[in-house]
């Protein structure tokens, strides 16, 4: 959405995006078919992302702990601050924003190319001609599935990252087990978790709806599907960062 030739173009795209969303959230034809689709998407968008989330969580947690240890390497600063810093950065930023940026790449490109391919091979036309609301059929289950499963992924990412941090800190002799765990618990605010989950809901909606939009309006050939998928990833990432800033202002400041 940011790459536009003129202001008019941006208005056109934003208008078309909201139009598509309105179409996507109209009453489904057969309820049970949509339920089945939501489960399928939970698997494809969520469960199939578990691997990548585990890997990045371990390394992010470990890295944060090492950095915290190095920058607090002074006898005046208590060691438990390492645990505290790790928890704060993982909970507030990493498990929501960074994770969703990664998912924007994985899930967003997948959605845009799937829907884009259906568009250029006339499968979307085929749905429409049967009388199926193609926008609702293709987009709504993805949005609902992502908004349902992403928060669980976030909670999981928090635990894995903090475990990764423990491994790096304790086994690397940077902090004692007791100090690290004490740091994790100190000044804990439940609202931080709520804040990060609220962000994830916005990000999940952004990734799925923006990527669906670019796929749905792909026009041309295979090259265009590739372009749609690139635009989907770039623009959802940018929107995620802007939303991150706005929501932080709104909820924390």
């Amino acid at each position: 959405m940011y790459i536009t030739n003129s202001g008019m173009n941006l208005f056109f795209e934003v208008g078309r995006y909201f139009n598509l969303l309105a179409k996507a959230f109209s009453k489904p034809e057969k309820f049970w078919i949509y339920i089945k689709l939501v489960f399928k998407e939970i698997d494809e968008l969520g469960i199939q992302s578990l691997g990548i989330i585990t890997v990045i969580s371990i390394f992010m947690g470990a890295t944060v702990v090492i950095q915290a240890a190095l920058s607090t390497d002074s006898p005046l600063i208590p060691k438990y601050l390492i645990g505290f810093t790790a928890r704060q950065s993982v909970v507030l930023e990493f498990a929501s924003t960074l994770m969703c940026l990664i998912l924007a790449g994985k899930v967003g490109s997948r959605i845009a190319s799937e829907i884009g391919t259906m568009r250029i091979t006339e499968q979307i036309d085929a749905l429409e001609i049967m009388g199926v609301n193609s926008a609702a059929y293709l987009i709504m289950p993805k949005i609902i599935a992502a908004m349902f499963i992403f928060p669980f992924l976030t909670v999981l990412a928090i635990f894995i990252a903090l475990a990764g941090g423990y491994a790096a800190g304790v086994f690397g002799n940077l902090v004692t087990s007791a100090d690290y765990i004490y740091g994790l618990q100190i000044q804990f605010r439940t609202f931080d978790i709520i804040y990060t989950l609220i962000k994830v809901e916005f990000f999940a909606f952004t990734i799925t709806s923006v990527s669906s939009y670019y796929g749905y309006y792909a026009y041309g050939g295979a090259l265009e599907v590739g372009r749609a998928s690139t635009k989907a990833v770039v623009n959802s990432s940018i929107i995620i960062l802007v939303l991150d800033y706005l929501l932080t202002q709104l909820l924390l400041a």
Partner: peptide, 30 residues
């Protein structure tokens, strides 16, 4: 639209569904 059947230039079959599922699809929906 439900009284219309259309065959597209490239066939426009749903590629994640089998031949039988493709033909059954309109029945599933309607």
């Amino acid at each position: 639209r439900k009284e219309i059947g259309m065959v597209f230039q490239g066939g426009a079959l749903f590629d994640s569904a089998t031949i039988l599922e493709n033909v059954m699809y309109p029945l599933d929906m309607f």
